[in-house]
């Protein structure tokens, strides 16, 4: 489970129908690290994630996992290495947490094979590793938004992939649950060496939790590197079209972005 994988996009172009959202994009995902993709709405960050997990077929270029094109890999084989949690997954009504988590085992099960003891063990492992044992027999419908998002991550955990892509895993969560989810992903990265790529809305959360930050503008990568290298006033201007002050986060040492609006800014220069 510590095998490091090489995920990369080469001269990638993707879009919907005639419309090209991303054109000629190159990206190298650092193995065993946490990468956050940030950018303004509709800059193509979700599209990029969908192409990387082959939910979208590239118009040109390729996505490579360990040098092999993901679009030519067998579906289940890919699903044993690369997992994806989309933005709004649907929970079948009445399903319990344990059963939902168990569905993550699909890529490891043979066609028509019965549910095995190993599958129960994998589900139990995933629940215990994430402190969700108490939820196991609860129906998903009864959970809060934060618990539910946690359970989806537990399902991705049961899928047991070395690479995990997440599309805005903290959207719609209050700040405490955002931190909880990102802490959980950090645990996963540290304890299992899972390579994590997540699209995040919140620049400061991204800077705090990611090793590697990718800032996108209009379907291109504007800047990428460590948060300290990437997150500066110029990047914020280019990505969000907004002035900002960057300070050191006193709690984590990561850069912290303070937006400058038209009001409530005491000593704005010029």
């Amino acid at each position: 489970m510590t095998a490091s994988h090489d995920l990369a996009a080469r001269a990638l172009a993707v879009g919907y129908g005639e419309r090209t959202v991303i054109d000629d994009l190159d990206l190298q995902v650092p193995g065993g690290k946490m990468t956050a993709i940030v950018g303004a709405n509709a800059c193509g960050k979700s599209t990029l994630l969908r192409a990387m997990s082959r939910l979208l077929k590239p118009q040109r270029g390729q996505v490579l996992l360990d040098g092999r094109e993901v679009h030519s890999m067998r579906s289940k084989e890919l699903a044993r290495t690369l997992g994806l949690l989309p933005q709004s997954p649907l929970a079948p009504e009445g399903i319990t947490v344990a059963d939902l988590v168990g569905r993550g085992r699909h890529p490891h099960q043979k066609l028509m094979a019965r549910w095995s003891r190993d599958d129960d063990k994998a589900v139990a492992d995933a629940l215990e590793a994430t402190d969700t044992v108490a939820l196991a027999e609860r129906p998903i419908d009864e959970l809060s938004g934060g618990q539910r998002q946690r359970v989806w991550i537990v399902m991705a955990l049961a899928q047991d992939t070395d690479v995990l892509l997440l599309d805005e895993p903290t959207t719609f969560l209050d700040v405490a649950h955002q931190v909880e989810v990102l802490d959980l992903l950090t645990d996963l990265n540290r304890d299992r060496g899972t390579t994590i790529v997540m699209v995040l809305h919140d620049l400061n959360m991204a800077a705090r939790y990611a090793h590697h930050l990718v800032a996108m503008v209009e379907g291109r990568i504007h800047a990428s590197g460590t948060p300290a290298d990437v997150l500066n006033a110029q990047t914020v201007r280019a990505v969000f079209g907004m002035d900002a002050v960057i300070i050191d986060d006193p709690t984590s040492g990561a850069p912290l972005m303070l937006p400058l609006g038209r009001h409530h800014v005491a000593e704005r220069e010029h």
Binding site: S53, L55, P86, A91, P92, R103
Partner: peptide, 21 residues
Amino acid sequence: SHSRHLGLMQMGDDVAAALGV
């Protein structure tokens, strides 16, 4: 023979595809 796929597709096409369907 597709009943398990049907079950996974209940969670949305993206989740099912990510699980290898």
